[in-house]
Design a protein around this nucleic acid. Structure first.
Lengths: 136, 136
DNA sequence: CGGGATCCCTGCCGATACTG
DNA sequence: CAGTATCGGCAGGGATCCCG
């Protein structure tokens, strides 16, 4: 799709939101942006992309995240139906997280975004340098 | 693209990041996620999508944003080369903001994401209700 | 093992007032 | 008109300790 068409469609959508959701916070797009923006959600989704994992596995694969925040992130994603949580009554109990169909379908637009990031990161970095060099 | 392939590609990319950017904060995807996650950036981008606007116009079209935050948002987007800022030495001075080519190209993946949001918002809302109903 | 509860702190965001 | 300057609230994120 050409950028021009994307622009037009976005504008149309945006106008619709305005009428449909006078309170912008209830706009559907906001919800999704929140995942994407949340510091760790996407990384968790990607980590779960190929196979389900247990809590400890996730923690080990993403050591930078704190336990508390991992728990919260998982709860949030579960709440919105992007991942599912299965408790096995072993001893001690083990809990497995996996992507739902909905969560998996999010990977497609997510991938588009990540591709864009990779392709354009150089330009962004250069723009930043120029900006700084201009004394701003 | 099927979801399965998106998953695979994301995993590959993710592994590459890990090696290339041991400090996750310097990962290219992070930068882009930050725009998307930033409360107002996308709305500003969309508003600029079809024609450039002056500061006051933007403020009027997005009344919910405060002046200070609008200024900051514009600065951030300008810094990364997504929008350009042109000062006309009229009296009083007027400033025009417009999308750059780079900024315009971001609209495409952004649109994909927004589409996904619109298509799946019902499922998300239902999942939330179920979650609450389950007493969590 | 997989969390819950608590404390704390930084940085986003907003309101208000002022300026070239 | 298009911003700066200043103050302050509050929520996201983190460290640490504790529990079944």
């Amino acid at each position: 799709m050409p950028a021009r068409e994307a622009a037009r469609k976005l504008n149309e959508s945006c106008r619709t939101w305005r009428e449909q959701f006078p309170d912008l916070t209830s706009c559907p797009a906001r919800d999704v942006m929140d995942y994407i923006g949340a510091k760790w959600s996407t990384l968790v989704l990607i980590t779960l992309a190929q196979r389900s994992r247990r809590f400890g596995e996730l923690k080990r694969e993403i050591p930078e995240i704190s336990q508390r925040v991992l728990t919260q992130t998982l709860r949030d994603l579960e709440q919105d139906g992007l991942i599912s949580r299965t408790v096995f009554p072993t001893k001690p109990p083990s809990v497995e997280y996996s992507l739902t169909k909905l969560g998996t379908s999010l990977l497609i637009p997510l991938w588009e975004l990540v591709s864009w990031a990779n392709e354009n990161h150089d330009k962004i970095r250069r723009a930043r340098k120029r900006f700084k060099a201009a004394g701003k």
